[in-house]
């Protein structure tokens, strides 16, 4: 039976793991290669590497770092940040990435999803969506925090969450899947960094509406949060960054908890 995946994420800025200062037992706390090796040893199911400044600063993800990480791990490895075209995708795959995660450019140029899926296969094209909730009245205009608001929607943001765009997250996920994306990496901007748990409502809404796997991201703080998003909200995988970086929990601890609760994981 297919297991649910636990995925540590390395947020990289200027070749260093951001937030990685307390990584215990590592020679260099913020060294992404050392962090990747540690997660491989912990039995992580996959690794995601996001160059968090790449898109905004219009610079490309550093190929050398991808090569160095790929050289040292034996698990699937997704790379995102700053991808603009087919050439960028090819460079990353050639450098050792198994999948690429496209966010801003997928919104700006949706045909890139189809082109790259055709070229490299859907299974290696991940569309990342950063979403933030807002309330909408029955006329469809945003009236956040007003009592007459009637339904909850999630708006898509690009450029590392800096720029809102006129897209509904659920509709965008459906479009991305239809265009050929193999997976959705869904980050809740409302819950990210809160450690209060994943956005279950958002995750469920997206997961119920697409037939490709959904990775939930943003808000993990305790083992129960992983259970909630995987068992209740229907996510196929759960991603966390700082929780694992600070060693508040190890991948293994999370998996042991899930297994005890009856969720299929690879131990």
């Amino acid at each position: 039976m297919l297991t649910k995946r636990i995925i540590p994420c390395l947020d990289i800025k200027d070749n260093r793991v951001v937030k990685g200062v307390k990584f215990l037992g590592l020679k260099d706390a913020g060294d992404p290669v050392e962090a990747a090796k540690a997660y491989d040893r912990q039995g992580a199911d996959e690794l995601v590497f996001l160059d968090i400044t790449a898109s905004f600063e219009n610079r490309k993800t550093l190929i050398e770092l991808v090569e160095a990480i790929a050289e040292n791990i034996y698990m699937p490895f997704t790379v995102g940040g700053g991808i603009r075209d087919i050439g960028d995708i090819r460079d990353l795959l050639n450098a050792g990435a198994d999948k690429v995660s496209i966010n801003t450019q997928a919104v700006k140029l949706p045909e890139l999803i189809g082109l790259s899926a055709e070229k490299f296969g859907s299974q290696c094209i991940v569309v990342a969506i950063d979403a933030k909730s807002h309330m909408v009245n029955d006329k469809g205009s945003a009236i956040s925090h007003k009592p007459q608001a009637t339904s909850k929607h999630w708006q898509v943001y690009i450029n590392g969450g800096r720029t809102p765009v006129d897209l509904d997250a659920i509709e965008w996920a459906k479009t991305a899947a239809a265009l050929g994306a193999g997976e959705i990496l869904l980050t809740s901007m409302d819950f990210d960094g809160t450690k209060d748990g994943y956005d279950l409502e958002l995750t469920k809404a997206v997961s119920d509406n697409v037939s490709i796997p959904v990775i939930a991201s943003g808000g993990a703080g305790r083992p129960e949060h992983f259970y909630d998003v995987l068992a209740e909200a229907g996510a196929d995988a759960a991603l966390a960054a700082s929780l694992f970086h600070y060693q508040e929990l190890t991948v293994k601890q999370v998996k042991e908890y899930l297994s005890k609760k009856g969720v299929r994981v690879r131990l």
Partner: peptide, 15 residues
């Protein structure tokens, strides 16, 4: 086929 709500691609760790 994706029958029974199974997601396609089959992605992840299986036995």
């Amino acid at each position: 086929s994706g029958a029974g709500g199974l997601k396609v691609p089959h992605m992840g760790w299986n036995q």
